[in-house]
């Protein structure tokens, strides 16, 4: 379990990094946290000729709340127009997980990050690296997908912004092109009167989930459930998003504000999923589990939404 020979590049600037990536195209791999790439190399499952270690490139480790006053000073390309969290390519999971600003703007991020492997891995691994690795069983792709976030890609030829819906193209496959670096990811802020929940079942604490659910539930001005979106991990070739808004209205129907009845959603979810079996669990179980977890997550997200709507001071945007 030693990697085959490769050329190692340690550029000091973004421009240098992009030059190396442009020169070697598909034969180059970007090394950020290395928590997936290094095992792949050691097991000789990946044999790139060039490793481009971006850890020395300045300015890529930012975790910024954008769409606020602070964002006015952001460099060109760092702005996205909307409010949210912009995570640079070298920002470690742990930095995002522990950021009070992130928790206030998009609490789904820390909620999901707590399920990413173990603290030592989160200290090294990066959020953007996890997205670029595009493992459909990983937490962050599902979070980006359910929130409708974007990935900012940069290459010697220029920059482009890729919506989550277009970014994940298959298992371990993304829309990034040879020569491109995922420079940052943007996670939109949580709108008012909205709640989130993340839940997953894994064989061991910190393992990839057998199935996992990221739920976002919105209330209207009367605090009645009006929208529901659920992102799934571990049940499809790419992160899957179900818009359960029609089911949300049904769940709220005839009940007091915020007291939606989500039972029965599991059956709907099971009918809309077609997971693959693997050595850890069969397709039937995963489908069943996704249904169970959806109900749990929707209940928790509804409670969270109600809580946020009723105690606006605590979650006030001004705190940004």
């Amino acid at each position: 379990m030693k990697p085959p020979p490769f050329a190692y590049h340690a550029p000091a600037t973004l421009a240098e990094a992009l030059d190396v990536l442009a020169a070697h195209g598909a034969d180059a791999k970007v090394l950020a946290g290395g928590q997936s790439l290094i095992p792949l190399l050691n097991m000789r499952l990946a044999e790139p000729g060039h490793i481009v270690d971006i850890n020395r490139v300045a300015g890529l480790d930012g975790v910024r709340i954008v769409g606020s006053e602070e964002d006015a000073q952001a460099p060109p390309g760092g702005r996205t127009g909307g409010k949210g969290v912009r995570v640079g390519a070298l920002a470690r999971h742990a930095a995002v997980e522990r950021s009070a600003g992130v928790a206030a703007v998009q609490p789904l991020l820390p909620a999901a990050l707590r399920h990413v492997a173990h603290p030592v891995i989160r200290n090294r691994g990066t959020v953007v690296g996890s997205l670029a690795h595009a493992d459909p069983a990983a937490e962050l792709p599902a979070v980006l997908a359910v929130l409708g976030g974007t990935v900012e890609a940069v290459s010697a030829a220029g920059r482009r912004t890729i919506p989550a819906a277009d970014f994940f193209t298959g298992p371990l496959e993304s829309a990034l092109r040879p020569g491109e670096l995922a420079e940052a990811a943007f996670f939109p802020a949580l709108p008012p009167r909205t709640g989130v929940a993340f839940t997953e079942t894994s064989r061991r604490h910190g393992d990839y989930a057998l199935a996992g659910v990221a739920a976002v539930v919105g209330l209207d001005e009367d605090l009645r459930v009006s929208t529901a979106r659920v992102g799934y991990l571990g049940v499809a070739a790419t992160p899957l998003v179900l818009d359960l808004t029609p089911r949300a209205r049904q769940a709220q129907d005839g009940r007091p504000p915020g007291a939606a009845d989500w039972s029965g959603v599991a059956g709907y979810v099971r009918d809309h999923l077609d997971p693959e079996p693997d050595i850890h669990a069969g397709a039937d179980y995963r489908r069943h589990l996704a249904g169970v977890l959806t109900e749990r997550a929707l209940r928790a997200a509804t409670a969270d939404a109600l809580d946020r709507a009723q105690t606006p001071g605590v979650h006030d945007e001004a705190e940004w």
């Binding site: 064989r203 061991r204 604490h205 910190g206 393992d207 050595i279 850890h280």
Partner: peptide, 23 residues
């Protein structure tokens, strides 16, 4: 986990699940 051809499908600590302290 061997498949019918005798390949061990979980020959790594990612897929052979030794319990952690958390278990």
């Amino acid at each position: 986990v061997y498949d019918e051809s005798g390949q061990l499908l979980n020959a790594s600590f990612m897929d052979f699940l030794m319990p952690y302290a958390t278990e």
